[in-house]
Design a protein around this nucleic acid. Sequence first.
DNA 1: ATAAATAAGTTAACCGTTAAACCTAATAAG
DNA 2: CTTATTAGGTTTAACGGTTAACTTATTTAT
Lengths: 340, 340
Amino acid sequence: MAMKIKDIAKVAGVSTATVSNVINGNHNKVSEETIKRVMQIVEENDYNPSATARSLARKESKIIGVVMPNLAPDEPFSISPYYTQILAMLEKYVRTKGYYLMVRSVGKCAEIVPVFSTWNVDGMIILGAFRDEVPELEDKLKKVPTVYIDTYASDLNIANIGIDDYKGGYLAARYLMGKGHREIAFVGPNVDSPGVIKQRFKGFSDALAEKNIQITADNIFESLTMFEQGVEAGRKVAFSKKKFTAVVSMSDILAFGVMEGLKLSGLKVPDDISVIGFDNLPECRYSNPQLTTVSQNLEKKAHDAGDALFRMIESKEMISVNEIVDVEIVERQSVREVYN
Amino acid sequence: MAMKIKDIAKVAGVSTATVSNVINGNHNKVSEETIKRVMQIVEENDYNPSATARSLARKESKIIGVVMPNLAPDEPFSISPYYTQILAMLEKYVRTKGYYLMVRSVGKCAEIVPVFSTWNVDGMIILGAFRDEVPELEDKLKKVPTVYIDTYASDLNIANIGIDDYKGGYLAARYLMGKGHREIAFVGPNVDSPGVIKQRFKGFSDALAEKNIQITADNIFESLTMFEQGVEAGRKVAFSKKKFTAVVSMSDILAFGVMEGLKLSGLKVPDDISVIGFDNLPECRYSNPQLTTVSQNLEKKAHDAGDALFRMIESKEMISVNEIVDVEIVERQSVREVYN
DNA sequence: ATAAATAAGTTAACCGTTAAACCTAATAAG
DNA sequence: CTTATTAGGTTTAACGGTTAACTTATTTAT
């Protein structure tokens, strides 16, 4: 059985309070002598204070709760690399601060947030929540520093790190038009429900409208954002009545699927049709053709989210930020110029 | 401030013990009447018992600690998709059991294991530990159910879920030889240090030896397992004195890099040179050519690890398993037949 | 020489639950 | 009719720390 603070105190011939003071660095309360002695006993016995007990007494935990969306609840690979990538970066960030990550992926956040609270988490990061669930969440998590990533809710006075989704859609369209494309398909989740996709679509269609290109329902291929669904969407694009010269896809993984679907339908990318993705995952460099995409700068998002969160934790007050990380086109090989 | 058990007890006019009994389902100790009343008050006040206090009292936590190797400590994307993939699957597994995951990636496991212990984790999963660190670990984690994934230590009486690495290397070589290849490069971490790579290399070279093909130092390209290092290795393979017709790579991500490096050196895959990977990540389907690889069946590994872990947790006894998940070649497009 | 301040502790309450031991009235058994 | 048993609780001591308040001996200031 592992040693407890009482045991250390007994061996050292001091009270538990003294031991507590030395291991917590309240060294003004205790003599050099005693510090040395206690420390040595701690080392010798490989004593680690119970994080649970400490957390109970201090009402803090050095743990950060992360809730991730579970994109397709029953699939084995249902968590997008986009989110696992961010998770890895967040883990790195909190690690440098001496914190731990508690992770849960789930359909609805509202169930999990209260559980994190019961663990006295010092902060929470919520990935990809919908705007509409935010009010309920805010109600439940009262007083726990929280930062959202990718929640489109600028009106809500929360701390959110997102991108300029409108600009992302806009840039993609401009880029493609700059390469001479005019018949462009849009592949992604429903463009009407409020959220990031709606914004992106708005930017996309506004850019086209500026050049007098009208978007109709035929241009839109509604699809979830994983590979298989992309394959399906790619096929539909290939066999559509409209002859598209380019497609913009709402995630890179989806774009990989689209490229595969196009290929299976006999079209070569980018020779016959161009594809642009969204996210700029490391995977973009593995694909062939390498995927041209709208970059989200994941690293900056994760880092800024960490910064915002710890600013709140350290200052002990809720701050509301609405940070917009810049987006840009990363040119690779999946888009070619077209001449009319 | 959130309600505590005392508050609920006061409102219900019962003792905290009774409240505790109803929320924990010890219903034989309390009347139907009281159960109803307490439950209602619990609901009305949205009461959630403190996980921290409960954990302290019960000496258990419903949390599973996961330690992941940090492949290249200072790189932003330093955690391989191989591990994040497994992490996502493990999260799913434990979620169905009502457990939470606490995650830490770190260079050396020995520091993190004791910390998990102080959280009263009910179990731990350790990914990719080296055999040599196991004894120290076992010493530190005394009594916490633990399962290792990918630790080659069949002699050590621990619970490990791995694959038949020897067979993996053997199969890769056989497969390539079956396609007519005789000059095969091996790209991966050091083949001498004890561990999975050594085993794979043994299988690889044994298979070749069976056909009287000798492996020399020229065939081996030592490399870490991420993309960038693969690019470098691919270049070296391309410009080596020996003319290789195929390369086996110790991870898929590495193989993507190798393909890129070969391409940058003017070689086409698979026309000029074939490449076979190891892992069978979802990404293999995104690459072009799609990567032929040795499949690890990640899903089964994660699932079996979960099974083993919860078998230990539920039976409250340490069991030692040394499970070998089967490997197989998954044929895609990165290897072609060659005629001598 | 005396009061005030400081150094180096100790004591004990508290953090929020659990669970073993104890209690009491009502029912069942003999 | 007396004794066991049971149903339905309550009391209280853990669980393993932290920390505010208190103590005591020694310096420092006046």
